[in-house]
Design a binder for these strands. Sequence first.
RNA 1: GUGGGCGUAGCUCAGUUGGUUAGAGCGCCAGGUUGUGGUCCUGGAGGUCGCGGGUUCGACCCCCGUCGCUCACCCCA
Length: 427
Amino acid sequence: MSEPSQFQAPVGTHDVLAPESAQWEGLVATFAHYAHLYGFSLVITPVFEDVGVFHRGIGEQSDVARKEMYVFKDRGERLYALRPEGTAPVVRAFVQHQPTTPFKAWYFTPAFRYERPQAGRYRQHHQLGVEVLGTGDPAVDVEVITLAQRFYEALGLTRFRLLINSMGHLECRGAYVELLRSHLEAHAEELCDEHQKTWRTNPLRVLDCKNAACVAVTAKGPMLIDHLCEDCRTHFSAVREGLSRLGVANELNPRLVRGFDYYTRTTFEFVSDALEGAQNAIGGGGRYDGLVEQLGGKPTSGIGFGSGVERLLIAREAEGITTPLLARQLDVFVVDTTHEDVATLLLDRLRAAGLASDRAYDQRSMKAQMKVADKSGARLALLVGPQELAAGEVTIRDLRSADFGQTQQRVSQEDVVSTIVQLLRMK
RNA sequence: GUGGGCGUAGCUCAGUUGGUUAGAGCGCCAGGUUGUGGUCCUGGAGGUCGCGGGUUCGACCCCCGUCGCUCACCCCA
């Protein structure tokens, strides 16, 4: 393999430039707004952690831990992993700092998984999410799920569904897994090739298999939802009832088994019907009542969800939603042909007054600068040439109108900012 | 990890059965208008045809390898 003559973004990663980056900015701002409305505060944790955080967090047997983590040793021989998901690091931080509960945090973070990229799947993708630690109240399950629902609605999404299931708590799930395992054992030869090998170590995964053979086997077998203990059943119906009361439609999907081992009780996934193929999950999450203990803390309930930024943007596009998530507009564009760089001073004053302003550089011709002004999308152009300079004035030009005889005016340099503010207010 | 499709200007793409100096549209720059953008006209810059090797008198075109992009499986956001 030879050295690349030109560098490019690593496989499965991508750069986000304007104008697309405005969508990202708007998306994150919208989420931050909703998180705030629901009483969440921002949490920022490192993008890399001791591998143990993830091994113990998401489970040694999960696909992500087994084969998808970016693991590396630093110069001090410490073994780290780039975060493959957002929950485990937040829980680690919770255990470390022991904040008062309930601890409600939201995050926006890149996540890394070493897998082959395809539509809607990357090696570095980005997630928005929330976590609540310190309460097992089903009202929190409802709150977290509703936050996701309202956020998606705010993005303009309509063609998505909420799938929900209960994984039970550690004991009733453990009992069920044994039940399932013996069922699978009896029908092991009927399973698909993949699960013939793995059903013993990770029996729950078989429930999620789309292969007809596996579906046939599990259809005859026990479903976890039918084997929940009294408490888990009560919790689950409280959650579903709470959602219904808020008008949040939800479908029970007893096969919904999410990829991380830490989930207990409520698990859910939002799928977009606008997205083709397997990459249709726009968000998902659930309760993880044993995770804090797994990471060395006291027994503490927790629940959260994460949502993929790239998936959400693709889903919006697939639904044909064209309204921008962030509409940014430049107020003023300064065209300076004096060769004395009056622009620098003018811009400083405009910006100090809170006006978004830009300029052309390199002392280009007026025509060239006007072209740039036009493309900038600014509403007004500020023209300063030798004439204006001599008179101590500037010309204000409305870039939205065709004839400049009518819509152009000269004002003194002292009045520039106030005149512009007034003009912009009129529009 | 497995398999399919594709790599020609900044972008979207043409390129005849392998045959001279590789094209278009858009974008960019300049001029038409020595103080005025969006339309129009004219001109210009810009390409080791992903990279390496092979076949051939001759390769963008054929063959092999490689890298990358893309789609699917698996799994997930």
